[in-house]
């Protein structure tokens, strides 16, 4: 990919005050999503408080390596999205598209790792009804999994837009809106991973 220095922004910014990156509507949607995940996390924590031995034993059987690998994949995807937005900010459409493609590859990697994890769980007859821990593990991670899939669809749309040269200074709303959604998916996982896979 290109070096770490970018050419100056083609057009000087005409505003210096605070600015929310992306469409206002996506930020209300993100807040709603954060609230939903927050309730889920609280429900997990308080259910565990009444089933500590069970939760700790079943958490210990999870594949923590897969969870950590997926954290690295999501963080790296988020980093690539930031680089794509920075490239767009400097009217570099093709580098922008390449960074987005790299982010899509990381997102796909997350989904593959998660599917292997689910396959291993199903082999051990783990299901929503097998225990309170497994109910939370499967539903929380699958709820997040669905968000990653939606995020991937958005990244592909952004990639397509970047290839057509749609993003540049003054035309950043589309890519910033999609980027904000993707970062939200990452942000939620940063709590989900330590909570479900590590803390006991």
């Amino acid at each position: 990919m290109e070096q770490d220095t970018l050419p100056a922004i083609a057009t000087p910014p005409d505003d210096t005050g605070p600015r929310l990156a992306g469409d206002l509507a996506i930020w209300f949607f993100i807040l709603a999503e954060l609230l939903a995940f927050g309730v889920f996390f609280a429900a997990y924590a308080f259910t565990r408080a009444n089933n500590i031995e069970l939760f700790d034993a079943e958490q210990a059987a999870l594949n923590r390596n897969a969870g950590a690998l997926n954290t690295v994949l999501l963080l790296t995807a988020s980093y690539f999205v930031v680089r794509a937005v920075q490239a767009a900010e400097h009217s570099l459409s093709q580098p922008c598209a390449r960074w987005l493609l790299a982010a899509i590859a990381c997102g796909a990697g997350f989904l593959v790792v998660k599917m292997f994890e689910y396959a291993a769980a199903f082999e051990h007859n783990i299901s929503l009804s097998s225990s309170p821990f497994h109910m939370f593990y499967l539903s929380l991670t699958f709820f997040h999994f669905m968000h990653v899939i939606l995020g991937m669809v958005i990244l592909v749309a952004m990639w397509n837009g970047a290839r057509q040269g749609r993003y540049r200074p003054g035309e950043m709303n589309g890519i910033e809106t999609g980027a904000a959604y993707w970062h939200m998916v990452d942000l939620v996982w940063l709590i989900l991973f330590p909570l479900v896979y590590v803390i006991h």
Binding site: D4, R19, Q86, E176
Partner: peptide, 26 residues
């Protein structure tokens, strides 16, 4: 018109590296 709110590639790369180290710590 968008102002340059997304920082520099260098800063993003440094932050990404620290995030990965923090993940390994967890």
């Amino acid at each position: 018109m968008s102002s340059d709110v997304h920082g520099t590639p260098r800063r993003a790369t440094l932050l990404w590296a620290t995030l990965i180290v923090a993940t390994l710590l967890t």
